[in-house]
Amino acid sequence: MSDIKQIKNLKDFSTSVERFQGGHRLCPGCSHSIIVREMLNATDDNICVSTATGCLEVCTAIYPYTSWDLSWIHIGFENAAAAISGTEAMYKALQKKGRPHSDKPTKFVAFGGDGGTYDIGFQSLSGAVERGHDFIYVCLDNEGYMNTGGQRSSSTPIGGATTTSPAGKVSYGEKRLKKDMVQIMAAHGCEFVAQVAPSKWKDLVKKTQRAYQASGPVYINAVSPCPTEWKFAPEKSMEICDLAVDSCVFPLYQIEDGHKVTVTYKPKVKKTVEEYCAAQGRFKHLFRPEFSHVIEDWQKRVDATWEYLLKREEAGI
């Protein structure tokens, strides 16, 4: 077990040796790289990263350049978890055999977008977690296939306009509810599952460090506002992130040992779903009178989920 990196405040944190370099081709204002930097900077141990096909992958390893100052692998869209499970197995085997490649402890992290996590990589993730590999799976959740022009995924929220669930004369956009991956992964019995937002860096770093200390699989769902496809100005990424959290559309909480819920951030003043939607072009059509019920229904669901989480936390079971 490695030592936990001491990060008392942002000044401490800013002394981190960066392992994710600039010069990548992610869009200006993309939240992905903010999440990645915060997570990688939360430890000084070696890290091996696998990344599912997606924005993060295609923009950070465009030959002849890599942005990764750590070992990194991309195989396919659907297998980031399987890939890192193999690397982790090799690490364990070489440790047992007494011929490791490095004396330093090594952490294993898989990054996938919601396409690579909720959809095409779901089986691979479920399998790797069930097998108990010691790794962190991080979903950079921007609620759609943004790398290929903003198509819907099973993470797209109801009412969201994407290029395959567009709003139109008779349609309010996406018709299905967003899949609840945090609960699904908790049901796998993970020692630790959490939802994070990059704008709440301290909460994110604390959860990531908890994840690094776990001895088995951890799932982290990170909200990743996408200026390009959520349709807001690039400088607003962290503001949108705060809105997602303060409206409780993306509640910050964690589940330990498959059941123990802790809500790690409670907004002093809860923002509304309407405020969250108003800040993004992808929900613009919901402000047409005929579609106003979508936001109303969404608000009811958000309130119910928030109440449920608070009750779960209070019950402590």
Binding site: N46, C48, A61, Y63, S71, L94
Partner: peptide, 15 residues
């Protein structure tokens, strides 16, 4: 990949 002192990138995109 497990040689942390000499990190490598596998699976880059080659257009």
């Amino acid at each position: 990949m497990l040689d942390g002192e000499n990190p490598v990138t596998y699976g880059a995109q080659t257009e």
